[in-house]
Deep mutational scan, measured.
Amino acid sequence: LTDEELVTMSVRELNQHLRGLSKEEIIQLKQRRRTLKNRGY
C-alpha cells in the first residue's frame, strides 16, 4: 500500500487489507496511517 492509499482509504477498506496480516504488521500500518493523517495530507 502507498502512503496515499493508506490515507484516502476508508477504515472498512483498510481492515479488509489487514485481514491475514500479522499483529505486528497491522500495528505498524496503523501507526504509519496515523502519522500521515497528523501531517495533514
Rank of each mutant, 00 (worst) to 15 (best):
T35I: 15
D3M: 03
L29Q: 02
D3I: 03
Q16K: 14
D3V: 02
R39A: 15
L1F: 09
V11M: 12
E13F: 03
R39G: 13
G20K: 09
Q16F: 13
T2V: 02
Q31R: 12
K23R: 12
E24L: 10
T2E: 03
T35Q: 14
L29A: 06
E24S: 13
R12G: 07
L36M: 04
R39D: 10
L6M: 02
L36Y: 02
R12M: 09
G20I: 05
E25S: 07
S10Y: 01
V11G: 06
G40Y: 14
L6F: 00
I26L: 04
T2F: 02
N15A: 12
R12Q: 12
N15I: 14
E13I: 05
L1V: 06
L6E: 01
G40R: 07
Q28L: 13
G20A: 06
L29F: 04
T2G: 04
E4T: 08
K37I: 15
S22F: 03
Q31D: 07
R32L: 04
L29C: 05
L21D: 00
L29H: 03
D3E: 03
S10D: 05
M9I: 05
S10P: 05
V11A: 10
N38T: 08
D3L: 04
H17Y: 15
S10W: 00
M9S: 02
Q31Y: 08
V7G: 05
T35E: 15
L6P: 00
R19G: 05
L1R: 02
I27T: 10
K37P: 01
N15P: 01
L36R: 02
N38A: 10
R39E: 14
Y41P: 10
R33D: 00
Y41G: 12
R32S: 00
R34M: 06
V11F: 09
L14Q: 01
E24V: 09
L14N: 00
L36H: 02
V7F: 09
L6Q: 00
T8E: 08
T35Y: 15
S10A: 04
R32I: 02
R12H: 11
I26H: 04
Q28D: 08
D3K: 01
G20Q: 06
L1P: 05
I27A: 12
E13D: 07
T2P: 03
I26G: 12
G40H: 13
L6Y: 00
L21E: 01
E24M: 11
T35V: 14
R39W: 09
K37C: 15
Y41Q: 13
Q31K: 13
Y41M: 12
R12N: 08
V11W: 15
R33F: 15
K37W: 05
R19P: 03
L36F: 01
D3F: 03
G40E: 13
K30W: 15
M9K: 03
S10F: 01
N15V: 13
V7H: 04
L1G: 01
L18F: 14
K37Q: 10
R19Y: 07
N15E: 11
Q28F: 13
R34F: 05
S10H: 04
Q31S: 10
L29E: 01
I27P: 01
E24G: 09
L6N: 00
L29I: 15
L1D: 01
Y41W: 11
H17A: 13
L29D: 00
Q28Y: 14
V7N: 04
E13K: 08
K23I: 11
S22R: 08
L21R: 09
L36K: 02
K23F: 10
S22G: 07
K23M: 11
L36P: 01
